[in-house]
């Protein structure tokens, strides 16, 4: 939420979760939302996929990889549907992810991700296939040029809302941007009978 580290270009191996419609209840089940901070949620990211009821590990790829080597999550269609919980991007980032890729990413999850520096990348089904068919590959994501480069050299562009992109590239703080508009906000309230 506060000033963030600028995000620009990085390369990393991917990890593939092929399931479609991974909702935010899967990313972080509601019973972990009683926290009053953002810290440490990576250990419960995909909790019910990774652990049994008694807390022991299930055989799951997220328990087997080194998160510092796998910064890019490639998921099935319609990633992040459901609840508006910002705990979902917090948990993914705390686990180690810097970007998520899908053929479709739900609105609120996308907005929440951008505000935290987790880059949502929407790709065509063809590119998605190329990613999932080589799930060990290393990709490069460049926000300046909005490009994703696969291991086979294929480079595609992706869309990021212009203001969100600027915030991420330059570390602009969205709350600060709004706070700078307080004179206009006050004028609006006065004109529209909404002053306190």
């Amino acid at each position: 939420m506060s000033n963030q580290e600028p995000v620009n270009s990085f390369s990393s191996r991917i990890v593939v979760l092929p399931e479609a419609n991974i909702d935010t209840d899967q990313i972080i089940p509601a019973r972990f939302l009683t926290t009053t901070t953002k810290a440490g949620l990576g250990k419960v990211a995909f909790n019910d996929w990774r652990y049994t009821a008694d807390g022991s590990n299930k055989p799951h790829i997220l328990n087997e990889i080194d998160p510092t080597e796998h910064r890019v999550l490639v998921a099935g269609n319609n990633l992040g549907c459901g609840s508006s919980r910002e705990h979902a991007p917090w948990a993914l980032m705390d686990y180690g992810f810097k970007a998520v890729i899908s053929t479709e990413i739900a609105d609120i999850f996308k907005s929440n991700s951008l505000k935290n520096g987790l880059l949502p990348v929407v790709v065509s089904p063809d590119i998605h296939d190329k990613l999932t068919q080589n799930p060990q590959q290393r990709v490069t994501i460049d926000l300046e040029s909005c490009t994703l480069t696969l291991e086979d050299g294929t480079t595609v562009t992706f869309q990021v809302e212009a203001f969100a992109r600027q915030c991420l590239l330059e570390g602009v703080d969205a709350m600060g941007w709004l706070l700078k508009r307080l004179p206009e906000i006050e004028a609006y309230e006065k004109t529209n009978g909404k002053a306190a």
């Binding site: 939420m1 907005s111 929440n112 505000k115 706070l179």
Partner: peptide, 13 residues
Amino acid sequence: GIGTSEVGHVLAT
């Protein structure tokens, strides 16, 4: 619906 960052934005502005 909004996320927590935006809850902050509305509280502040």
